[in-house]
């Protein structure tokens, strides 16, 4: 139980530090951060936030980092709370990702990502398109052919409606020349439940994060037809859609944001601290262990990326009928 003990000591130390006057100019190693994970404990955003917490503290990019969970509605509850409470704050950050972009649109959320300050894009995971091993479809071209033949009987399984999985299924249907509104997409609560539907052979094809179904793909229970990442990934046999002649790319990215209207100096400090963390060998090792792909982009690049991504997601969600 030495861990508990050290945790206690650390807690007392942070407590002792907290009462010291914080009037000194903000330097990276003095940062006392709070990161909001807009999801419950255990989910993707939560583990991203907690990984960042670990590495920021172990590399000395920040002195202390606290993670708070604000779950709800694809992250939009957390976003709304963050926009209201982190205005101009130099030490609060929020984790978000493509699911949040979709949820903001489908839920008609009061705040969108233009309200917060992008600090960095962190990771990006490929999605994978699979069929059961017993399926007659051997290649992506077979699947596209099947969609053309009967779009309604091509049944897709994946995560919740309007999420990244749904978007990819719609993009593939569109690429086959069919109306994306006609995609017969059966939504499940997560990669686990849709996996059972895949293995049970109840659906034609499935979409999920590659990592979630990696075991079944490697054991041969599922056949991976393509990944949605723009380039081939080391260790993944399936080829990108782009390489197979379909102009589709979709990355399940995660990034980190600061509050609205923070000063340029604070933004620079936070960006530097995150960059230092992300470039550290500890972070590279950690994301490898988690099966995440490095997808770092700096603050400005990330801001442009979000703008184009929002337009793209909005367009496809409208064509499915989930956004006005």
């Amino acid at each position: 139980m030495t861990y508990l003990h050290s945790k206690l000591v650390a807690a007392w130390l942070t407590a002792a530090v907290a009462v010291l006057p914080a009037a000194l100019p903000a330097q990276a190693q003095d940062l006392e951060l709070t990161i909001t994970a807009p999801a419950g404990a255990g989910g993707g955003w939560d583990s991203a936030a907690r990984s960042l917490q670990d590495v920021m503290m172990s590399t000395g990019a920040a002195r202390s980092v606290q993670v708070i969970n604000v779950p709800g509605a694809g992250g939009t509850v957390g976003l709304a709370q963050f926009v209201q409470s982190a205005e101009g704050s130099p030490n609060q950050m929020l984790v978000g990702g493509i699911t949040m972009v979709g949820a903001i649109i489908t839920n008609d959320a009061p705040y969108d990502l233009t309200k917060v300050t992008p600090i960095a894009r962190l990771t990006g995971d490929p999605l994978v398109i699979v069929v059961p091993s017993s399926s007659p479809y051997k290649t992506m071209a077979d699947l596209i052919e099947g969609i053309k033949k009967d779009v309604g009987r091509t049944i897709w399984a994946g995560g919740s409606a309007g999420g990244a999985d749904h978007i990819l299924a719609a993009l593939v249907t569109q690429a086959a020349g069919e109306d994306p509104a006609k995609v017969n997409y059966v939504a499940y609560s997560g990669g686990g439940e849709s996996l059972a539907a895949m293995l049970g052979g109840q659906v034609t094809a499935g979409v999920s994060g590659y990592g979630e179904w990696q075991g079944q793909i490697e054991s041969g229970d599922l056949r991976a037809l393509a990944i949605s990442y723009p380039e081939p990934i080391e260790g993944i046999e399936a080829k990108p859609l782009k390489e197979q002649g379909y102009d589709i790319e979709l990355v399940n990215w995660r990034g980190i944001f600061a509050g609205p209207g923070i000063s340029d100096a604070d933004k620079a400090t936070l960006s530097a601290a995150v960059e230092k963390t992300v470039k550290s060998p500890e972070w590279q090792e950690l994301i490898k262990a988690r099966g995440w792909a490095d997808y770092y982009a700096s603050s400005d690049e990330f801001a442009t990326f979000i703008a184009t991504e929002t337009d793209r997601v909005h367009a496809i969600l409208s064509s499915i009928g989930l956004a006005q």
Partner: peptide, 13 residues
Amino acid sequence: AGFQQYNLQPGPL
């Protein structure tokens, strides 16, 4: 989530 802490992916393998 606990399994994944150690890069163990529960599954057929």
